[in-house]
Amino acid sequence: MGDRAKSLRNTIVLIAGLLVFWQLMYAVIGEVAMRSPWQTMRYTVTLVETDFFWVHLTNTLQAFAVALVLSVVLGLLIGFALGLHRLSAEAMEPMLVALYSIPKITLYPIILLAFGLGMSAKIAFGAIHGIIPVALFTLNAVRSTKPILVKTGRVLKLSPPAMVRSILFPAAVPEIFTGLRVGFSLTLIGTVLGEMFAAQHGLGYLLMNAIGLYNVDVIMSVTFLLVVFAAGVNGILLAVDRRLHFRV
């Protein structure tokens, strides 16, 4: 069996397994707190047809898109700036790792106070989740560029921007892409989390609102959609990621 056929088979077996697990959980827990996969999918279809769902969805997607752009741009800038300077890289890497492992959700009140309720707070919250992984992966990618490539650049007397453009960036692309993949997921998590606490729109708000109304259908459907979206995009990015790593 080829690699591709194998990974396809694994994915299908896995999805089937998860569906069976879900159905079993439903059988154990029951109608009070859960819905079966079939019921959830049926409700999801009705939910997707309503207008109010689209209002929330576009709101989340807008915030997420801006947050993602910010994460990527700032993350790359920080990563390159630190990666190019050895001492900075050595000093800042552990600090970034420490920042990465703190429960950033506790910073949310500060962000709310600084940005006010609404779109900008969500964006900022999504972005602080995404910037650090992008910066970390970029920093390490730049730092671990083969010395011979950097030396060649020096011999050719490349200016720092030219060095980044024609040597460091192409050499670091696979690692940077891994950073983008992780950054994508975390930015999405950050944005939705931001909506769960103090927001009037978005999928996160929809979830929290559904707890208040004890609307199990909505909780199941929105969670399902979020998981499918996150897993789907990540699957695509992962495939690109593997191809990039393979090329090098």
Partner: peptide, 8 residues
């Protein structure tokens, strides 16, 4: 780790 576990 792409899945928002908090959504659960």
């Amino acid at each position: 780790y792409a899945i928002p576990v908090f959504a659960f």
